[in-house]
Design a protein around this nucleic acid. Structure first.
Lengths: 215, 215
DNA sequence: TAGTGTGAAGGAGTTCACAGCC
DNA sequence: GGCTGTGAACTCCTTCACACTA
């Protein structure tokens, strides 16, 4: 359906979609690129270019975009119209917290099960998720048609767990571990790394970034 | 000290630094741009260009970079040689989980205190963090010389909390809330948004991204 | 010889300007 | 008149090529 969008555009589409969902909830019917950009902190030019790339058809010259239609169009290009089956690999503190996260289903993501190496967790049900042994990953992945893995294991076992995930045929990894994973090209990793974000912050907070300074 | 680096470069420096720390721990003395790039999944060209931009001096032609020195240099450009004082705004589930996070100190970040609007939490000590009323933010921020805020409040109150943080003179926000914040130019926001990452994943997992397909 | 330092070429994404429709 | 659709200019980052030095 959709060729290749610049990854920056994909990120912005996610942002637009969020804004559109809010607007639709508030009953807004039309939105201009100006307003949509404002809410996402992107220029109107950029918004129009992004939407051009996604071959959106909900724009009306002189009036703007129809919120409901645009939202549906973006949901569709982002692949959010079908449902995605997710497993959590690593049922430590973070894994359990994610298992308890309330509304994945609101976004068409379903938590199916968890995996852990720790025998004391295997076989239990944490929150509402059944926990299996990590060695069963391949079997369960096929059986349960898993699409996505949340990787929440300790750094030391991250690559090993990744290899199992890949071998199980799962093609999407949301990586919460602060390390770079090696995967074949067909597998996509999205990092979620708050420590990296924190370090970037430190860089920007240093004096030099104080933009010429007031004085 | 350091002018302006492309934000992509800053992200990669963080990555290099992580690799260097591991190497130093393993006792590796020298590293080539090739190896450093390999571990960070970046081309050797890119590594050298990034290091060129940061005016690093630890490279030796024919041999590579001295791990220990390069690590120190990057720590310094990233602003990780001084210590940063952090508060958590929003002591819900996520805020508390962060409060319990073990080794911020290993990175020169110190958790100082938490803030919450909920009177039942104010005055308590969660984990090891004293929790104050969010309305005290300005006073405590000055008193405690806070540099950075982790924003972990519900979406609905995110902008209001941000305004308080900004008014308190805090210039760095690590934003865990899935929404775009509006802040003055002098304030830096780094988003940590796993839902956005998840949606990006969905996009890339769709058939089209399957790279021309096998068959 | 091996691998950095660095200008120059190339490519990708952003901004601009304006034509085209409602 | 107002705002989208879209090619073209521009800017920024990446890749390349190679001179340079330990």
């Amino acid at each position: 359906m959709q060729h290749d969008l610049p990854s920056v555009t994909v990120s912005r589409l996610v942002s637009y979609l969020r804004v559109l969902a809010d607007m639709e909830a508030e009953g807004v019917a039309y939105v201009t690129s100006e307003r949509l950009g404002g809410a996402s902190q992107v220029s109107a030019h950029q918004v129009r270019k992004d939407l051009l790339l996604t071959r959106v058809t909900s724009g009306t010259r002189g009036r703007g975009y129809t919120v409901a239609i645009l939202r549906r169009e973006l949901s569709s290009t982002l692949g959010l119209t079908r449902s995605w089956r997710v497993a959590i690999v690593g049922m430590g503190r973070l894994g359990q917290a994610l298992a308890d996260y309330p509304d994945f289903s609101g976004f068409n993501f379903s938590l199916i099960c968890g995996f852990d190496r720790d025998a004391s967790k295997v076989g239990k049900t944490l929150g509402t998720l059944p926990v299996f042994d990590t060695r069963e990953l391949a079997d369960r992945a096929r059986e349960q048609a898993l699409d996505i893995a949340f990787l929440t294991v300790p750094v030391a076992s991250a690559q090993a767990a990744t290899d199992l995930i890949v071998a199980a045929g799962i093609r999407g990894i949301l990586n919460f571990v602060p390390t770079v994973l090696t995967v074949p090209e067909a597998v996509r990793v999205e990092p979620v790394d708050f420590l990296a974000g924190l370090k970037r912050l430190a860089f920007y907070l240093q004096p030099h970034a104080a933009v010429a300074a007031a004085s």
